[in-house]
């Protein structure tokens, strides 16, 4: 394939990856920002979203779109509710101590994975997309000095992939509105700035924490429901989103929502685009090292102010 069309294709693929990543990472960033804890089980809540989407979609009959819409509504809410319960029964009781939270969430990671394996099984199962039309994309070339439109072999995307990008954009806007314009967002930001002070001012910090944890994990689940018609639900699918969201959150600057979104775009797109130039595994090595070096020379992240420990 020629260079131009290839770059377009890689960018489109990168954009889909970036959208899903942005949603997942914003969930992690919210938890990180407000509660100052690392949720190692974040990827497992992502996986639960995908698995629940499969359960919901297969139990709803009729047109595939019905099942998908039902999954879109039900799975994130269920996962968010479960996460809130985990917060109240475990995280609250370890007093959100950073190290103990890491171990506790590793334990939760094992539990969720194993329970999924025992109930859902080891297969990768697909959810039918509500619509999925292949859209060929035209490109131009110069024939005798004049540009001429043609349809390159293989240059295409699908309507569903475009929908994923749009849906992620809408959701992220809603999250931003919630954080910046609503009362609950105000309470969250107050808690983020100073938990103790917020408590003194009568903010129900414990309830805010449970809610933040629920919303954060619910966003991961939503991202998973969006991706599951493209990739399948599998009980080990949570590891990659976890690692990538981690990176995105740090690169974006701790707890900064716009930073997180921009970092997700950078990471998602660069993964696609670097693969144009290098052999795939070498591209992965380079993009991994790139992330490391960004942090080494800008530890507060690209868009963060100084990190507060």
């Amino acid at each position: 394939m020629d260079f131009g069309p290839y770059l377009i294709l890689a960018s489109l693929e990168g954009a889909v990856a970036a959208s899903v990543l942005a949603l997942t990472a914003v969930g992690l960033s919210l938890v990180f920002g407000v509660m100052r804890v690392v949720n190692v089980a974040h990827g497992e809540f992502f996986m639960l979203g995908a698995v629940l989407a499969w359960f919901v979609a297969t139990s709803v009959g009729g047109h595939p779109a019905l099942g998908f819409v039902a999954a879109l509504l039900v799975a994130p809410v269920l996962v968010g509710g479960l996460a809130a319960v985990v917060d109240m029964t475990v995280l609250k009781r370890v007093a959100y101590d950073p190290e103990r939270t890491i171990v506790a969430t590793i334990g939760i990671l094992y539990i969720i994975q194993q329970v999924t394996l025992m109930t859902y099984g080891p297969d990768a199962r697909p959810v039918t997309p509500p619509f999925n039309t292949r859209l060929a994309i035209p490109w131009f070339e110069f024939v005798g000095g004049r540009p001429q439109v043609y349809w390159p072999w293989g240059l295409s995307t699908t309507s569903y992939k475009l929908f994923v990008i749009a849906a992620a954009a809408v959701t992220l806007t809603l999250v931003w509105l919630m954080m910046s314009r609503s009362k609950i967002g105000l309470l969250m930001r107050a808690t983020q700035l100073d938990g103790e002070m917020a408590q003194v001012f009568g903010i129900p910090v414990e309830r805010i924490y449970a809610m933040v944890f629920g919303i954060g994990c619910g966003l991961a689940a939503l991202a998973a429901v969006l991706i599951v018609p493209i990739q399948q639900a599998h009980y080990l699918m949570g590891t990659d989103p976890l690692l990538l969201s981690f990176i995105v959150v740090i690169i974006g600057g701790l707890g900064s929502l716009p930073g997180t979104v921009i970092a997700a775009l950078l990471i998602g797109m660069s993964d696609g685009i670097i693969s144009v130039f290098y052999t795939p595994t070498l591209a992965k090595i380079l993009s991994t090292l790139l992330v490391a070096f960004v942090l080494v020379f800008r530890p507060q992240g690209l868009f963060g102010t100084r990190e507060r420990d």
Partner: peptide, 14 residues
């Protein structure tokens, strides 16, 4: 050659 743990593939097909 597709890297292990890869979950999307279209970008390699060109």
């Amino acid at each position: 050659a597709i890297p292990p743990t890869e979950s999307s593939f279209t970008k390699y097909f060109p």
